[in-house]
């Protein structure tokens, strides 16, 4: 499962731009993850603050 640490997230939206399944959405100050997430982990690599993590 993709988790967003909302205490770390600076809501920049970079993760939304690289998501291949359009599963992320930046809603003002938080990231929403939809059921379309394939847990590929691409977004976690580019998160400038390391707020995203794919957990088993």
């Amino acid at each position: 499962m993709l988790t967003v640490n909302r205490y770390k997230c600076c809501y920049c939206g970079a993760c939304v731009g690289v998501c291949p399944t359009c599963a992320l959405e930046l809603v003002e100050t938080f990231i929403e993850v939809s059921a379309d997430c394939k847990e590929c982990g691409i977004c976690t690599k580019i998160c400038p603050v390391g707020a995203l993590e794919v957990k088993a």
């Binding site: 970079a14 939304v16 731009g17 690289v18 998501c19 992320l24 959405e25 690599k45 580019i46």
Partner: peptide
């Protein structure tokens, strides 16, 4: 912006590669 959805909704693939 970088998190654009409008293009994707319209069928334009704007997904950025790493």
């Amino acid at each position: 912006g970088v998190e654009s959805k409008v293009g994707r909704w319209a069928g334009i693939d704007t997904t950025l590669k790493l």
